[in-house]
């Protein structure tokens, strides 16, 4: 047996021969969001410029954890988040490089940082996804959703587990503080269910376990619709929540020129058309959104990133304690009664 173990060990060591992680000319990109999109744009960039790209793909939260763990010896050159709050937080710590790409004029107004540290590469809108057979009966305004008497067939991804839903709750709570908490408390009281992740909630919608998904990220729903799923995306009249997907260069990058070239490339029409094809809203005003999405963006609201960075923790904590984990129906009723 010793010999067997020895052989296995040797095989393991040979099998796991490491590749060199610190190649001087490789660009390191940390990206959240649709993986095929990031892969395609990175491959196109390498083909166009000859610069090889190491793409590390995870959720925004996981990227933040990794960036924090690497704080004392940064590895990434570019970050691409699925949330503006994450980028604003890095900016606050002075970890982003100021840079104005040539495409800046072509980008949609006020989607990006006025101080030019991060730029929207695209955006998603957060609203309500419904089954097509429920669409006719579905409320059209947030206030009507919040007033539903029976919410047992409504689901929402948990804001402390799904980044996009977290941004959605923070934005609503900054815009309409009291109405938002009272509204979600009322929905919870009426039987609304929480799911651990977007995909789990979407799955429940497809299977018919739920009629409506509050806090749905629209590009994921459009992907499902494009596959023929009988779903529809609704944007309540007061405004859907705009969640931009910022791209930024880390200040510690040893390769600022390659990094700048990458940002330019991501904001160029060719890449932006790929963004649109993934059903995200492109950041360039001169690139048309996908047909499923439609040319016109609905009315939207967006959180002030500075306020959002400061208040996010408190808002999500309050949501978690008062609504998700409310100890009793009475506690929920108290939270729901806070506003008319």
């Amino acid at each position: 047996m010793t010999r067997a173990i020895f052989l296995a060990l040797t095989a393991a060591l040979i099998g796991c021969r490491s590749r060199d992680g610190t190649d001087a000319d490789r660009l390191v990109v940390y990206s959240a969001g649709p993986r095929p999109l990031a892969e395609a744009i990175c491959a196109a960039f390498t083909q166009a410029t000859g610069t090889p790209v190491d793409l590390f793909q995870a959720t925004t939260g996981q990227l933040m954890a990794r960036l924090e763990a690497e704080k004392y010896r940064p590895r990434a050159d570019i970050v691409l988040f699925a949330s503006e709050i994450a980028a604003a937080a890095l900016k606050r710590e002075g970890r982003l490089l100021r840079f104005r790409p040539e495409a800046a004029e072509r980008l949609r107004a006020d989607w990006s940082d006025p101080d030019e540290t991060y730029w929207a590469s695209g955006a998603a809108l957060v609203g309500v996804a419904v089954r097509r057979d429920f669409a006719e009966r579905a409320p059209r305004r947030w206030s009507d959703w919040f007033a539903l008497a029976d919410a047992r067939r409504i689901v929402m991804p948990s804001p402390s587990r799904s980044g996009a839903t977290g941004d959605f709750v923070v934005t609503l709570a900054l815009q309409w503080p009291e109405e938002t908490f009272a509204g979600f408390a009322r929905l919870r009281l009426a039987g609304m269910d929480f799911a651990a992740a977007n995909s789990q909630a979407i799955g429940g919608l497809q299977m018919g376990a739920h009629d409506a998904l509050i806090g749905a990220v629209d590009y994921l729903i459009y992907q499902q619709i494009a596959r023929g799923e009988p779903l529809e995306m609704l944007y309540p009249e007061e405004g859907a929540v705009l969640v931009t997907r910022p791209i930024a260069i880390l200040a510690a990058t040893p390769r600022p020129d390659a990094a700048k070239a990458f940002v330019e490339f991501y904001l160029a029409p060719e890449s932006q058309r790929r963004v649109a094809a993934a059903h995200l809203a492109p950041a360039r005003a001169d690139v048309a959104p996908s047909p499923a999405r439609g040319a016109e963006l609905p009315r939207w609201i967006r959180a002030d990133p500075v306020a959002a960075v400061l208040r996010q923790g408190a808002i999500l904590r309050r949501f978690q304690l008062d609504i998700e984990r409310a100890a009793s129906a009475r506690a929920l009723r108290r939270a729901a009664g806070a506003a008319p």
Binding site: G61, M64, E68, I85, A89, A196, V309, Q312, E324
Partner: peptide
């Protein structure tokens, strides 16, 4: 995380995960 959202179980690992993956990390 998957089953406990309905069960409303408040557990330490979820809290730790939250601290490490949402701003401020």
């Amino acid at each position: 995380a998957v089953l406990g959202t309905r069960a409303n179980l408040a557990l330490l690992p979820a809290e730790i995960y939250h601290l490490l993956t949402s701003w401020p990390v």
